[in-house]
Amino acid sequence: MRRWRTGAILIGLLIAAQGVTLLGGGAIVERVITLMLIHVVLAVALHIFMGGSGVVSFGQIAFMGIGAYASILFTLTERGKRVALPNLYAPLIDLALPYLPALIAAGLIAALCAAMVGLPLMRLSGGAAVIATFALLVIVNVVLLNWNQVTNGPRTVFGIERLTNSWAALGWAAAAVIAALAFKESRWGLMLRASREDARAAESIGVDIVRMRWIAWVISAFFTGAAGGLYAHFIGSFGASAFYLSTTFLILAMLVIGGARSVSGAVIGVFTITLLSELLRAAEAAINVGGAISVSGATSLLISLLMLIALIVRPGGLMGGREL
């Protein structure tokens, strides 16, 4: 029953955030909230893998990129494809799905990729796993940057209809939260967490750690891929560099600050960082109109500092592994 309460509280929080957009503030506030909700999907998805297995992944954002490119293959019109993806393979030109099925398909494609690369990757743990997931991020990024026929190479893809509004993002964020909570308390989730606490003991009672990790990895990739689709239809135009180290770091920092071991931690981390970066932006706008300070530099300074402080002061993050 606790699970339902946590779910209700978290979804209540998400709805409250959505409520802010109704109060006014117009398009800018809605964009901030939408992006935040997309980040919730990403952070919760990362939690599904990291929180359960205790293995840090630098590779998840690769699936966001895969999902983003996959989703627009379904939603771009034929004319749109000829402009945005001029070298596209002919059979893909006629591909078309409505928005929601396109996002689900994007998630499934990402999950399929994860299922394949996960077979060798999930055998690794500790430092080796992190390095290998990092290599995965790099490999996928390079493929996205250079697969002319599908991604139009390093050029920006544009002309994507902005179908993602805060309601769509809210729906996916809520779905991710429910899935994460359900997974956490499921048989698989419990076994995975047991393996995190004591791998040897879990193995000795017959938990197949590699398989449990793999399941969490694939579920995580599904939501990450869908979030990629959400993001693509939110931002309208993007390039492969959007799915690289800085996004990886941002999501990782959000999760670490909130607390990687609980779903609530993921949500709270995203809320906290979003709030603080918006405050920083507002402060900067107030202090220097001339733009004497690099905004992106200051934001990355702030986030990394917060992450380090969180790690030092509260290694379990703000939530310390607890659920709301």
Binding site: F249, A253, G297, A298, S304, L308
Partner: peptide, 14 residues
């Protein structure tokens, strides 16, 4: 060190 990586990069930019 991924944290300090972004910290010092941000510092350089600022």
């Amino acid at each position: 060190t991924i944290g300090t990586q972004f910290f010092w990069r941000g510092m350089v930019q600022v």
